[in-house]
Amino acid sequence: MTKWDLFPLAAAEEARVVDDAFRVLMIMSVPVFTFVLAALLYAIPRFRKGGEPAGDGPAIHTHGPTVATWFLATTALTLLVIVFPGTTGLLELRHHAAREPDLVVKVEGTRFFWKMTYPQQGVLSVTELVLPVGKRVRFEVTATDVVHSFWIPAFRTKIDAVPGLVTTTHVTPDKTGSFQEDSFFRLQCAELCGVAHSLMQTPVRVVEQSEFESWVAKQVPAPSS
């Protein structure tokens, strides 16, 4: 994490796409914000009268070139953010999602905990989400009672867990780390689900492949279904 990053920690390939888009939008916002603010800060002291003005201002109803310029400029800016970073970022995320996953994790939200099943490994965990670094993971998310939302801030990924529906999201963690080091490594419920909603979180740990395998070996076997 460099000093200038707005987000504290990014630990997945997909997170870079999101952060890049955020950065581009920040950079575009600065001139727009500054322009309007400068116009206000110039106009207010420049044109104010101390108290009730005696006469009227000039009868300018509109000014074609100004309106046309403004309209074209705002339209151009809007189209720009739609295309870049909006559509380009979206396509990039789709591209990531289209790749074959190395690992599938089934995630099930129930008030107020998450259950992670690793079907390829045949294990399940409710205390911790452990992932190997550098591997493509597909999360298949659902819920048993109410709507929850699967959010891992460090991965910039979020998808609702909806009863009766399996939603998917794809992540390639590219940095090891754990909740103990940074709270961005947490699986947090992001959709209001009841009394303990804010506490519905599970630590996330990204480890080397070998460590992942030894963790798997120690887990409870998942009931075959």
Binding site: F47, K49, E52, P53, D56, I60, T66, V67, F71, T78
Partner: peptide
């Protein structure tokens, strides 16, 4: 995403009207 961002164009017109109105006016604060 496209429809949502298109709303910034008419919203921009409201800002244009606001700034254009105070410009060269006799502001009574």
């Amino acid at each position: 995403m496209v429809t949502t961002e298109l709303i910034s164009i008419p919203t921009g017109v409201v800002f244009l009207a606001g700034l254009g109105t105070i410009w060269l006016g006799r502001l009574w604060l």
